[in-house]
Write a protein that binds this DNA or RNA. Sequence first.
DNA 1: GATGAATGAGACTTCATTCAT
DNA 2: CATGAATGAAGTCTCATTCAT
Lengths: 191, 191, 191, 191
Amino acid sequence: MRQDKTGLIFQAAIDIFSDRGFDRATMDDIAARANVAKGTIYYHFKSKEDLFLFLVEEGIDLLRESVNEQIRPEMNGKDKLETAIRQQIRFFGEYRDFCIILLREAWGAEQRQKEFRKMLTQYTKSIEEYIRQAVEEGDFLQIEPESAAWTVFGGASIASLHLLLSKHREYKDEELANVVTTILMQGLQAK
Amino acid sequence: MRQDKTGLIFQAAIDIFSDRGFDRATMDDIAARANVAKGTIYYHFKSKEDLFLFLVEEGIDLLRESVNEQIRPEMNGKDKLETAIRQQIRFFGEYRDFCIILLREAWGAEQRQKEFRKMLTQYTKSIEEYIRQAVEEGDFLQIEPESAAWTVFGGASIASLHLLLSKHREYKDEELANVVTTILMQGLQAK
Amino acid sequence: MRQDKTGLIFQAAIDIFSDRGFDRATMDDIAARANVAKGTIYYHFKSKEDLFLFLVEEGIDLLRESVNEQIRPEMNGKDKLETAIRQQIRFFGEYRDFCIILLREAWGAEQRQKEFRKMLTQYTKSIEEYIRQAVEEGDFLQIEPESAAWTVFGGASIASLHLLLSKHREYKDEELANVVTTILMQGLQAK
Amino acid sequence: MRQDKTGLIFQAAIDIFSDRGFDRATMDDIAARANVAKGTIYYHFKSKEDLFLFLVEEGIDLLRESVNEQIRPEMNGKDKLETAIRQQIRFFGEYRDFCIILLREAWGAEQRQKEFRKMLTQYTKSIEEYIRQAVEEGDFLQIEPESAAWTVFGGASIASLHLLLSKHREYKDEELANVVTTILMQGLQAK
DNA sequence: GATGAATGAGACTTCATTCAT
DNA sequence: CATGAATGAAGTCTCATTCAT
């Protein structure tokens, strides 16, 4: 988008991080991809970790905005959740690199990974809220909302990721969303 | 278990890989943890990647055996799937390190990651089979089985992983299994 | 000569390689001798082999230029050859390190050694040409020129090398050149 | 020849040293080639260097014997030298591995290389003697015998080595000996 | 005599970061 | 603002040698 150096670096970093992972990505790779000198990255970002965290924050924010845009406060919890799942799957289709980064880099004991999870938790908390609302409204079974939220997030995310990494299959977001929402809302069982 | 050096190295490697991830784990760390000299690791394993892949193969095999043990051929597809989910969640509670390694290291374009996913796919294929069987038996909705299998695997796995990484919550496998199987089999919706 | 780091590294590498041989020479040694950090070498050269080959290429080029300078096209083959031998012996006296590297490292089945020999062959080919010309001009005996060229090169080189490695004798290039050219041109036999 | 372990190791060592050079050759390689355990080598030889020096000593002894066999004390110096050159070229054709080892490993400042050269010098000293005798007998030009001996040795050796390393040419020892002796005895010049 | 598992010093190479220009 | 040469700590891997069996 932005044509300034920061934007170039940002795009290049997403590219490289998703291709190689945080540890294998080098600042040289990123600089080369962004067509800037290595020192320039350090002018705009304090460190590799700083760059990564900036990018992750933007990504999570974008995901949240993208989902929130589709949700109106007056909707009931069930609709909110279904909308969120569907929108998340669309989002991962559009921002494939971020989907890959998210599922590769969020787990682990390092500082950046903890911060990553803290941001991610903001997102899953809102899923939790929708579930809570739907339970209160009597539309959902009584169920422990935190684990439910992570089950929902995990099911949708890993299904997306699998499709993104499959060379032989296209990522058709609406079809995938139908499968996933059906399972999560109605269950696999008939009736 | 095994008191030979290979066993010591194996245990140490699982420890260290799950703690630091493949890239951040060093052969020095592993050697120190296993109480052997660094060269000893290279006497038993060709390379870091070789060690990792060996460990992953054993892990996936163990997971599959652990699940298969609980499943009798005469069971219907629905019961097989429910049993598999429940058993997977138990397994991840017992082999936490492997659960973490699995979800951190399976995604990416490197050779070891591709091989990892190939092994993992053997496992998800069997989940797919249970779903297919249940669909044929009329117990499950008509649904695309591959994406369904990954949704199931992802939902159960990420829910496990979240709990394992939570400092403030205990991993109660039966409770978690109840939540997850309920969602996946009956859906979140009441009735 | 050159005061940039590349020049410093180049000089240090010649020193160390000739002292210890390719395999025994370490990048640490070379860095220390050049008064640069080890990483600096890798900034300028892709690898130890790359550095070695660069140095060898420069050496062979210098040898060829040094010889060619003394040879005018209108000279007859006999004079060309005699001039070449004499000049090679002078050159080895001036660039002792290169003489040692040449005779230690050119033989073997590894890639760098094959490339080394390919470069060296360019040089011996020109010796071969002088012999061919002298044969055509009737000044030389009918003789197989390729083996003759290597006999000439080997005789002059090993004689130089022996003197360079002798602690108790000085390298007097003109005296040595007299002995060697006499043998190769007139033979050992009197009359 | 000898079928005991020492003999097997000896043969294997020659093979491996000539193929990879002293530094690149590993005791594992040699053990594998000899079909013995690595420890066995250390039962028969003190160290890698010890093994190497033993092998070099045998080689040089064999070369000297092989040459001496052809030389009768009553021969004049000129015939002795010509016989020696011819026989050396035959020997290198028969013991190619040793020829390669000799010219790769004799130059350098390490202990084993100095010892190697000391042994080699015993051989070149005898060449020097033949030259001295021929000069005294009036058959050879007055010439400095030490440099002359190394010129002779170097010319013959490098010509042999070049042919041994040429994939496209056969090693025809008599033809090569004719070229080399002609050059060294009569010189390249016609008349 | 023979074995081969184990060792650890030491080699090559990578790469995040700095800083003088 | 931007650059890119330089750094050195740290990582993977090799291999001669030892020693308990």
